[in-house]
């Protein structure tokens, strides 16, 4: 007994180091396999407020640019509105599938292998996990953690990200992943070899996802190659979004999501 205590006293620094190392490794490895730990993310109250505070200063520096962008978007939407012939009955459609909530990015990152974006909307604004986040140009990511006033978004520039996408005007779909190399390119895999592809084709979100609506723009084809199995394409996609410069975002809530998930679960349990 005496010897054990002596041993502990003698190597207490080493033991402390090993203990702390195991704690940090556990946190890291656990979040490699599943959603981030509830406590270690910037949607928390303290972190959210620090970033919110710095955001309130930073917003003043690019008000002009942001106004310009919003004006452009309004112009495009108005063009669409005036050129579609809608009957009044469509406008009071009760079968609403999506609601959109606007928000602002208060912390962005794009240089790590696993990037997260923090936005200034949270549970108080009825944001919950697994809602899609887009900008006026294209998709941005999926909500991962929420607090009362803030939420973290798993960016598409994240090795854990896996989003259903397809080639515009076809029904060939694949998965959108990121190889961590550059922040303006993501990869689309599992597109069969028989699909005719051209450089410059547009990639949009697919209909298989219960998170994003169909046909939200993602990017254009930069180059494509066959993968190792020689039966699927691996496509480099140039993003429409400039991931380094994002301010205003829209969070999409799919009102049918719960019903879809319940149905899928019931089917797979049979």
């Amino acid at each position: 007994m005496q010897q054990i205590i002596n041993f502990i006293i003698r190597y207490k620094n080493l033991l402390l180091y090993i203990l702390l190392m195991i704690i940090s490794l556990a946190f890291t490895i656990q979040s490699h396999s599943y959603h981030q730990s509830r406590f270690f993310n910037s949607s928390s109250w303290v972190a959210g407020n620090i970033y919110g505070f710095s955001h309130s200063f930073n917003t003043y520096f690019d008000l002009d640019d942001e106004n310009e962008r919003l004006l452009k978007e309004n112009e495009r939407l108005r063009n669409k509105l005036f050129n579609t012939t809608t009957s009044p009955s469509v406008e009071v459609d009760s079968s609403l599938r999506y609601t959109v909530i606007s928000g602002q990015v208060i912390k962005n990152s794009y240089a790590d292998p696993r990037n997260y974006i923090t936005i200034n909307r949270g549970e108080n604004d009825s944001i919950s996990q697994d809602m899609g986040v887009i900008t006026d140009l294209g998709i941005l990511g999926i909500v991962e953690n929420t607090s009362n006033k803030f939420a973290t978004v798993q960016s598409i520039l994240n090795t854990k990200s896996n989003i259903n996408a397809k080639i515009k005007n076809t029904n060939h779909f694949g998965s959108l992943i990121w190889d961590t190399k550059t922040y303006n390119t993501v990869q689309l895999i599992d597109i069969p070899r028989l699909v005719p592809l051209n450089i410059g084709d547009t990639i949009v979100t697919g209909a298989m996802s219960s998170i994003f609506p169909e046909n939200i723009p993602i990017g254009t084809i930069k180059k494509f190659d066959l993968d190792i199995s020689k039966s699927f394409y691996k496509i480099d996609v140039n993003l429409f979004n400039d991931m380094t410069n994002i301010k205003n975002v829209y969070i999409i809530k799919n009102l049918d999501r719960k019903e879809i998930l319940d149905l899928e679960e019931a089917t797979s349990n049979e």
């Binding site: 704690i23 940090s24 490794l25 556990a26 946190f27 890291t28 979040s31 981030q36 730990s37 406590f39 270690f40 993310n41 910037s42 928390s44 303290v46 972190a47 620090i50 970033y51 990152s109 790590d112 696993r114 990037n115 997260y116 923090t118 973290t152």
Partner: peptide, 9 residues
């Protein structure tokens, strides 16, 4: 870590 979403690296 807490402020930059990097787990405990």
């Amino acid at each position: 870590d807490f402020l930059s979403d990097t787990m405990a690296i």
